[in-house]
C-alpha cells in the first residue's frame, strides 16, 4: 500500500518538474518562465519528498526529508523575486498578448 502511494507521489512530482521545464521552453519571456520554474519545480520537489518520506525507515528520517522543502521554498521565493527585480532593472519589458 505504502509502495503504491509512494509511486504515485513520486510520479506526480516528476510530472511537475517536467511541466516546469516545459514552461521554461515554451513561455515567451523571463517573467513567465519564472512563474513556471518557481511554482512547478517546487511543487514537484514537495511531492518527491513526500513520496520518499512515507517510505522512510523512521519518523526522524521522514521528517528530515520533509525539512528540506521549506528551505528550498525560502530559497526559490527570494531568488525568484531577485531575478524579477533584476530583469526589471535591466529594462526587460514583459511580453504582452496584444503585441503579437
Amino acid at each position: 500500500m505504502i509502495e503504491l502511494v509512494s509511486t504515485l507521489l513520486l510520479s506526480v512530482g516528476a510530472f511537475f518538474y517536467f511541466a516546469g521545464t516545459l514552461g521554461l521552453l515554451r513561455f515567451p519571456d523571463v517573467y513567465c518562465r519564472l512563474h513556471a520554474l518557481a511554482k512547478a519545480d517546487n511543487l514537484g520537489l514537495g511531492f518527491i519528498l513526500l513520496g520518499l518520506a512515507i517510505q522512510a525507515e523512521s519518523l526522524a528520517a521522514a521528517l528530515k526529508l520533509v525539512l528540506i522543502w521549506p528551505l528550498v521554498l525560502a530559497a526559490s521565493a527570494t531568488v525568484s523575486y531577485a531575478i524579477a527585480r533584476r530583469a526589471d532593472t535591466l529594462g526587460i519589458k514583459p511580453w504582452r498578448r496584444e503585441e503579437r
Partner: peptide, 22 residues
C-alpha cells in the same frame, strides 16, 4: 537575456535537491 541565465540559480536549487534525495 541576462535575467534568463539567472534562472539557473533556481534550477540547481530545486532539481539538484530532487535528484539527490532520489
Amino acid at each position: 537575456t541576462a535575467a534568463d541565465r539567472m534562472l539557473l540559480a533556481l534550477l540547481f536549487g530545486t532539481t539538484g535537491v530532487g535528484i539527490l534525495v532520489l
